Amino acid sequence: MGDEDFLDLAAIAELLGVQVNSAQVYHKRAVRARREGTAKPWDMPEPDNVFGRSPVWREAKIRQWIESRPGRSTEAATEARRQGRAE
Results as ranks from 00 to 15, higher is better:
47 P>Y: 11
73 S>P: 00
56 V>S: 03
72 R>L: 09
74 T>K: 03
50 V>P: 04
65 W>M: 07
62 I>A: 05
69 R>V: 03
60 A>V: 11
47 P>E: 07
73 S>Y: 10
52 G>Q: 15
56 V>P: 00
54 S>H: 10
46 E>G: 07
57 W>D: 01
45 P>Q: 00
65 W>F: 13
72 R>D: 00
55 P>C: 04
44 M>H: 00
72 R>N: 04
47 P>D: 07
44 M>Y: 07
44 M>P: 03
68 S>Y: 09
46 E>Q: 14
60 A>E: 11
62 I>C: 01
59 E>I: 06
47 P>F: 12
63 R>P: 02
57 W>G: 01
62 I>H: 08
63 R>Q: 08
50 V>A: 11
57 W>Y: 07
59 E>N: 11
71 G>L: 13
48 D>Q: 05
58 R>G: 00
74 T>S: 13
52 G>C: 10
72 R>Y: 09
64 Q>Y: 06
66 I>W: 03
74 T>F: 00
64 Q>E: 10
72 R>A: 06
44 M>L: 13
58 R>D: 05
59 E>R: 15
72 R>C: 05
43 D>S: 08
41 P>Y: 06
46 E>R: 14
44 M>E: 04
61 K>V: 05
41 P>V: 07
60 A>S: 14
53 R>Y: 14
65 W>L: 01
41 P>E: 12
66 I>Q: 10
57 W>N: 02
42 W>Y: 14
64 Q>K: 11
59 E>L: 01
60 A>N: 12
43 D>E: 14
68 S>V: 01
61 K>Q: 09
62 I>M: 07
46 E>D: 13
46 E>M: 12
48 D>I: 08
63 R>K: 12
52 G>D: 13
41 P>L: 12
74 T>G: 08
47 P>S: 10
69 R>F: 06
73 S>I: 09
66 I>F: 06
48 D>M: 06
67 E>D: 12
70 P>I: 04
45 P>H: 02
74 T>M: 06
47 P>A: 08
68 S>D: 12
44 M>D: 00
50 V>H: 12
60 A>Q: 15
43 D>G: 03
45 P>F: 03
